[in-house]
Design a protein around this nucleic acid. Structure first.
Lengths: 143, 143
DNA sequence: CCCTTTACTTATCATTTGACAAGTAAATTG
DNA sequence: CAATTTACTTGTCAAATGATAAGTAAAGGG
């Protein structure tokens, strides 16, 4: 098996993944927040509690810009900042109840589109997909 | 197999794909062009010749914004616009020789990082990955 | 206890991106 | 051939994003 050929398949594959991700998530976010703000909320939703530094690292945002966006999300009552009692420089960021509701709705939209996409898949197809995802996650998209 | 469980695996998986894509492509583009401009060039590179309308559709850009970015890329001598002889409203967009060189370099950077990532994969691993990609492409990320 | 580092904030400015209104020119259609 | 549609352009404006300088407050280390 040629590694160059695998690379070319990967390029095509990631293009497909990005396209499908776009289709599943298109307009799933509320109009009241920007794309970057949505990305931050999604990250918080799956990893909470997180610190501003972690958001900065994982979302590839500078600390000043992270701080600004978190302030906006806080003003919109979508997140809560809790001061760390151990290290008072640190903050703990969580979704507020409004934030939880917003993200729950977004995920529900995305999931329903996903279910539509695989509606015709057989039991065997689903198992194949699951195995394929695990293979790639382990052998190619590992950390 | 539970479809909800598969959905959760997919969410994690696409996050991984996006992360690895970021790592492979980070700083691969020249500083002289913006991210959107790079995306357009990448699309042209793999699909040329293309029309401005196709770029607009596939890159999710309005026609006015597509037109502006193509003008900038043209001014930077990275693409060439050729008027269609059949339908004189249409244009055919291709990479210029400078554009070809720029994209060739970018792809070379990305490919070398990819090779580094799979350097320890066995022949069997590579075959597993290829099969997994084909499975997902066919059953999940189809058009 | 000073000095340095870490975590985060504030302020500011430039660039990029997105959106809309209006326009041109060629093709198509009735 | 007039009216409509298609393909693309130009101009303009606002919002989002990115980058940098400077500052605060707490923690850590000699």
């Amino acid at each position: 098996m040629d590694k160059k050929a695998l690379f070319n398949k990967l390029v095509q594959f990631t293009t497909s993944v990005h396209r499908v991700t776009y289709e599943l998530t298109k307009d799933a976010k509320s109009d009241s927040i920007s794309q970057v703000q949505y990305n931050i909320l999604e990250y918080i939703a799956v990893s909470q509690p997180v610190t501003p530094s972690e958001i900065s690292d994982c979302q590839h945002l500078s600390m000043p810009n992270t701080s600004r966006e978190l302030r906006k999300l806080s003003e919109k009552r979508l997140i809560e900042k809790i001061n760390d009692t151990e290290d008072r420089r640190k903050q703990s960021i969580r979704l507020s109840s409004d934030g939880e509701i917003m993200m729950k709705e977004a995920f529900a939209t995305i999931e329903s589109r996903f279910l539509l996409r695989i509606q015709n898949a057989s039991k065997e197809d689903l198992e194949d997909m699951e195995r394929a995802i695990e293979t790639l996650q382990k052998k190619l998209f590992h950390p």
